[in-house]
Design a protein around this nucleic acid. Structure first.
Length: 254
DNA sequence: ATGACTCCCAGTGGGAGA
Protein backbone atom coordinates (compact mmCIF):
# COMPACT_ATOMS: atom_id res chain seq x y z
CA UNK A 1 0.00 0.00 0.00
CA UNK A 2 1.38 3.38 -1.01
CA UNK A 3 0.25 6.68 0.48
CA UNK A 4 1.33 10.17 -0.51
CA UNK A 5 0.99 13.81 0.44
CA UNK A 6 1.39 16.83 -1.80
CA UNK A 7 0.83 20.53 -1.28
CA UNK A 8 -0.23 21.44 -4.81
CA UNK A 9 -0.49 25.22 -4.26
CA UNK A 10 -3.80 25.57 -6.14
CA UNK A 11 -5.46 22.45 -7.48
CA UNK A 12 -7.04 24.59 -10.17
CA UNK A 13 -3.61 25.34 -11.58
CA UNK A 14 -1.99 22.00 -10.78
CA UNK A 15 -4.72 19.50 -11.75
CA UNK A 16 -2.99 18.45 -15.00
CA UNK A 17 0.25 17.85 -13.07
CA UNK A 18 -1.62 15.89 -10.39
CA UNK A 19 -3.24 13.64 -13.00
CA UNK A 20 0.12 13.11 -14.72
CA UNK A 21 1.72 12.30 -11.39
CA UNK A 22 -1.00 9.81 -10.39
CA UNK A 23 -0.67 8.10 -13.76
CA UNK A 24 3.05 7.67 -13.17
CA UNK A 25 2.68 6.99 -9.43
CA UNK A 26 -0.55 5.04 -8.89
CA UNK A 27 -0.59 5.36 -5.10
CA UNK A 28 -3.50 3.89 -3.19
CA UNK A 29 -4.26 7.23 -1.56
CA UNK A 30 -3.00 10.80 -1.59
CA UNK A 31 -3.83 13.83 0.50
CA UNK A 32 -3.61 17.27 -1.05
CA UNK A 33 -3.13 20.66 0.57
CA UNK A 34 -3.77 24.22 -0.58
CA UNK A 35 -6.38 23.25 -3.12
CA UNK A 36 -7.66 26.86 -2.91
CA UNK A 37 -11.05 25.83 -4.28
CA UNK A 38 -14.55 26.18 -2.93
CA UNK A 39 -16.25 22.79 -2.72
CA UNK A 40 -18.44 23.45 -5.76
CA UNK A 41 -15.36 23.91 -7.93
CA UNK A 42 -13.58 20.69 -6.94
CA UNK A 43 -12.62 18.68 -10.07
CA UNK A 44 -14.39 15.52 -9.01
CA UNK A 45 -15.10 14.14 -12.47
CA UNK A 46 -11.52 14.48 -13.70
CA UNK A 47 -10.22 12.77 -10.58
CA UNK A 48 -12.80 9.97 -10.81
CA UNK A 49 -11.89 9.48 -14.46
CA UNK A 50 -8.33 8.90 -13.26
CA UNK A 51 -9.56 6.07 -11.06
CA UNK A 52 -9.75 7.85 -7.70
CA UNK A 53 -12.59 8.48 -5.30
CA UNK A 54 -12.31 11.79 -3.52
CA UNK A 55 -13.40 13.63 -0.42
CA UNK A 56 -12.64 17.31 -0.16
CA UNK A 57 -12.98 20.31 2.07
CA UNK A 58 -12.16 23.72 0.74
CA UNK A 59 -12.74 27.44 0.79
CA UNK A 60 -12.12 30.45 -1.38
CA UNK A 61 -8.54 31.62 -2.04
CA UNK A 62 -6.77 29.89 0.84
CA UNK A 63 -6.18 26.46 2.37
CA UNK A 64 -8.33 23.54 1.27
CA UNK A 65 -7.56 19.82 1.53
CA UNK A 66 -8.59 16.61 -0.18
CA UNK A 67 -8.26 12.86 0.23
CA UNK A 68 -8.10 10.80 -2.95
CA UNK A 69 -8.07 7.02 -2.91
CA UNK A 70 -8.64 4.14 -5.27
CA UNK A 71 -11.12 2.72 -2.75
CA UNK A 72 -13.83 4.96 -1.33
CA UNK A 73 -12.54 6.64 1.87
CA UNK A 74 -14.83 5.89 4.81
CA UNK A 75 -15.80 7.68 8.03
CA UNK A 76 -14.81 11.13 6.80
CA UNK A 77 -14.08 13.88 9.32
CA UNK A 78 -13.42 17.50 8.36
CA UNK A 79 -11.09 19.68 10.44
CA UNK A 80 -10.45 19.05 14.14
CA UNK A 81 -13.63 18.13 16.01
CA UNK A 82 -14.20 20.51 18.91
CA UNK A 83 -11.85 23.17 17.54
CA UNK A 84 -13.66 26.04 15.85
CA UNK A 85 -11.64 26.94 12.77
CA UNK A 86 -12.42 29.29 9.91
CA UNK A 87 -9.82 27.50 7.75
CA UNK A 88 -10.26 24.22 5.86
CA UNK A 89 -7.15 22.35 6.96
CA UNK A 90 -7.79 18.71 7.79
CA UNK A 91 -9.52 15.80 6.11
CA UNK A 92 -9.60 12.35 7.65
CA UNK A 93 -10.83 9.05 6.29
CA UNK A 94 -10.23 5.32 6.43
CA UNK A 95 -8.73 3.55 3.41
CA UNK A 96 -7.77 -0.11 3.43
CA UNK A 97 -8.13 -0.23 7.20
CA UNK A 98 -5.70 2.66 7.69
CA UNK A 99 -6.91 5.86 9.32
CA UNK A 100 -5.52 8.67 7.15
CA UNK A 101 -5.32 12.17 8.61
CA UNK A 102 -4.31 14.72 5.99
CA UNK A 103 -3.41 18.17 7.29
CA UNK A 104 -2.42 21.58 6.07
CA UNK A 105 -0.89 23.00 9.23
CA UNK A 106 -1.00 26.79 9.71
CA UNK A 107 1.97 28.72 8.39
CA UNK A 108 2.27 30.92 11.46
CA UNK A 109 3.90 33.84 9.63
CA UNK A 110 6.30 34.88 12.41
CA UNK A 111 6.79 34.32 16.14
CA UNK A 112 4.88 36.88 18.18
CA UNK A 113 2.06 37.35 15.69
CA UNK A 114 -1.59 36.38 16.03
CA UNK A 115 -1.05 33.84 13.28
CA UNK A 116 1.73 32.20 15.26
CA UNK A 117 -0.52 32.00 18.31
CA UNK A 118 -3.22 30.41 16.13
CA UNK A 119 -0.67 27.88 14.92
CA UNK A 120 0.15 26.96 18.51
CA UNK A 121 -3.52 26.57 19.45
CA UNK A 122 -4.19 24.57 16.31
CA UNK A 123 -1.27 22.22 17.02
CA UNK A 124 -2.48 21.67 20.56
CA UNK A 125 -6.03 20.94 19.41
CA UNK A 126 -4.74 18.55 16.76
CA UNK A 127 -2.71 16.64 19.33
CA UNK A 128 -5.57 16.41 21.80
CA UNK A 129 -7.95 15.11 19.15
CA UNK A 130 -5.37 12.74 17.68
CA UNK A 131 -4.81 11.04 21.02
CA UNK A 132 -8.39 9.78 20.94
CA UNK A 133 -8.27 9.05 17.23
CA UNK A 134 -5.18 6.88 17.75
CA UNK A 135 -6.88 4.99 20.55
CA UNK A 136 -9.84 4.30 18.28
CA UNK A 137 -7.72 3.58 15.18
CA UNK A 138 -4.31 2.09 16.05
CA UNK A 139 -3.34 1.93 12.39
CA UNK A 140 -3.06 5.65 11.68
CA UNK A 141 -1.04 7.93 9.41
CA UNK A 142 -0.77 11.69 9.95
CA UNK A 143 0.58 13.29 6.82
CA UNK A 144 0.59 16.61 5.07
CA UNK A 145 2.22 20.01 5.06
CA UNK A 146 3.25 20.49 8.69
CA UNK A 147 4.94 23.84 8.07
CA UNK A 148 7.59 22.84 10.60
CA UNK A 149 11.16 21.70 9.98
CA UNK A 150 11.59 19.31 12.93
CA UNK A 151 15.39 19.47 13.18
CA UNK A 152 18.29 21.52 11.91
CA UNK A 153 19.12 18.83 9.38
CA UNK A 154 15.75 19.61 7.79
CA UNK A 155 16.89 23.16 6.94
CA UNK A 156 19.34 24.18 4.21
CA UNK A 157 20.76 27.01 6.33
CA UNK A 158 19.93 26.32 9.98
CA UNK A 159 21.92 29.33 11.18
CA UNK A 160 20.00 31.78 9.02
CA UNK A 161 16.70 30.09 9.92
CA UNK A 162 17.35 29.78 13.66
CA UNK A 163 14.27 31.01 15.52
CA UNK A 164 12.49 31.84 12.27
CA UNK A 165 9.06 30.52 11.35
CA UNK A 166 9.08 26.73 10.78
CA UNK A 167 12.17 26.40 12.97
CA UNK A 168 11.23 27.86 16.35
CA UNK A 169 11.62 25.87 19.55
CA UNK A 170 7.86 26.17 20.16
CA UNK A 171 6.96 24.63 16.81
CA UNK A 172 9.52 21.87 17.18
CA UNK A 173 8.26 21.10 20.69
CA UNK A 174 4.79 20.54 19.21
CA UNK A 175 6.24 18.10 16.69
CA UNK A 176 8.00 16.22 19.48
CA UNK A 177 4.70 16.05 21.36
CA UNK A 178 2.99 14.60 18.30
CA UNK A 179 5.75 11.99 18.13
CA UNK A 180 5.16 11.43 21.83
CA UNK A 181 1.68 10.12 21.03
CA UNK A 182 3.43 7.13 19.48
CA UNK A 183 3.97 8.43 15.97
CA UNK A 184 7.12 7.95 13.91
CA UNK A 185 8.58 10.11 11.15
CA UNK A 186 8.53 7.60 8.30
CA UNK A 187 11.22 9.46 6.39
CA UNK A 188 13.68 9.07 9.25
CA UNK A 189 13.08 5.34 9.60
CA UNK A 190 15.52 5.01 6.71
CA UNK A 191 18.91 6.30 5.77
CA UNK A 192 18.30 9.32 3.58
CA UNK A 193 20.44 11.58 1.44
CA UNK A 194 21.59 14.70 3.29
CA UNK A 195 19.91 17.92 2.18
CA UNK A 196 16.56 16.25 1.58
CA UNK A 197 13.84 18.89 1.31
CA UNK A 198 10.15 18.97 0.40
CA UNK A 199 9.81 22.71 -0.22
CA UNK A 200 11.92 25.23 -2.10
CA UNK A 201 11.16 28.96 -2.32
CA UNK A 202 10.03 30.12 -5.73
CA UNK A 203 12.55 32.94 -5.47
CA UNK A 204 16.32 33.02 -5.65
CA UNK A 205 16.66 29.95 -7.89
CA UNK A 206 16.19 28.03 -4.65
CA UNK A 207 15.33 24.71 -6.28
CA UNK A 208 18.29 24.84 -8.64
CA UNK A 209 20.53 25.62 -5.67
CA UNK A 210 18.74 22.98 -3.55
CA UNK A 211 17.99 25.54 -0.83
CA UNK A 212 14.91 24.15 0.87
CA UNK A 213 13.18 22.86 3.96
CA UNK A 214 11.71 19.50 4.90
CA UNK A 215 8.28 20.56 6.15
CA UNK A 216 5.99 17.96 4.57
CA UNK A 217 5.87 14.81 6.66
CA UNK A 218 4.37 11.35 7.02
CA UNK A 219 4.01 10.14 10.61
CA UNK A 220 2.97 6.54 11.18
CA UNK A 221 1.55 4.99 14.31
CA UNK A 222 3.30 2.33 16.36
CA UNK A 223 1.09 -0.37 14.87
CA UNK A 224 2.00 0.65 11.32
CA UNK A 225 5.71 1.21 11.92
CA UNK A 226 6.73 -2.43 11.23
CA UNK A 227 4.91 -2.26 7.90
CA UNK A 228 6.84 0.76 6.55
CA UNK A 229 9.11 -0.34 3.71
CA UNK A 230 10.18 2.99 2.23
CA UNK A 231 9.62 6.72 2.41
CA UNK A 232 10.76 9.03 -0.37
CA UNK A 233 10.46 12.56 -1.69
CA UNK A 234 9.68 12.85 -5.40
CA UNK A 235 11.45 15.96 -6.70
CA UNK A 236 10.36 15.35 -10.28
CA UNK A 237 7.19 17.51 -10.18
CA UNK A 238 9.25 20.41 -8.84
CA UNK A 239 11.06 20.43 -12.20
CA UNK A 240 7.84 21.09 -14.12
CA UNK A 241 7.44 24.35 -15.96
CA UNK A 242 4.87 25.73 -13.48
CA UNK A 243 5.52 23.67 -10.37
CA UNK A 244 4.10 23.74 -6.92
CA UNK A 245 6.73 24.95 -4.49
CA UNK A 246 6.31 21.61 -2.62
CA UNK A 247 7.25 18.09 -3.71
CA UNK A 248 5.19 14.96 -2.97
CA UNK A 249 6.25 12.58 -0.21
CA UNK A 250 5.41 8.88 -0.54
CA UNK A 251 5.34 6.06 2.01
CA UNK A 252 5.15 2.38 1.18
CA UNK A 253 3.52 -0.05 3.60
CA UNK A 254 3.48 -3.80 3.10
C1' DA B 1 18.14 44.15 0.91
C1' DT B 2 12.08 46.17 3.72
C1' DG B 3 13.77 41.98 -2.63
C1' DA B 4 13.63 38.16 -5.62
C1' DC B 5 8.21 34.15 -7.13
C1' DT B 6 3.49 32.44 -7.49
C1' DC B 7 -1.27 32.35 -6.47
C1' DC B 8 -5.48 34.67 -5.55
C1' DC B 9 -8.94 38.35 -5.82
C1' DA B 10 -9.00 42.26 -7.20
C1' DG B 11 -9.20 45.83 -10.41
C1' DT B 12 -4.39 48.79 -12.96
C1' DG B 13 -2.18 46.78 -6.44
C1' DG B 14 -1.84 43.95 -2.25
C1' DG B 15 -2.13 39.89 0.96
C1' DA B 16 -0.33 35.45 1.89
C1' DG B 17 2.61 31.92 1.55
C1' DA B 18 7.24 29.81 3.63
Amino acid sequence: MKLATWNVNSLGVRLPQLLDWLAANPVDAIVLQETKLTDDRFPRSEIEAAGYRAQWFGQKTYNGVALLAKDEPLDIVRNIPGFADASARVITGTVGGVRIVGGYFPNGQAPGTDKFEYKMQWLRALREWLAGELAAHPGLVLLGDFNVAPEDRDVYDPVAWAGQIHCTDEERAHIRQLLGLGLHDAFRLFEQPPKSWTWWDYRNLAFRRNQGLRIDHILVSEALKPRVKACTIDKAPRRNERPSDHAPVIVELD
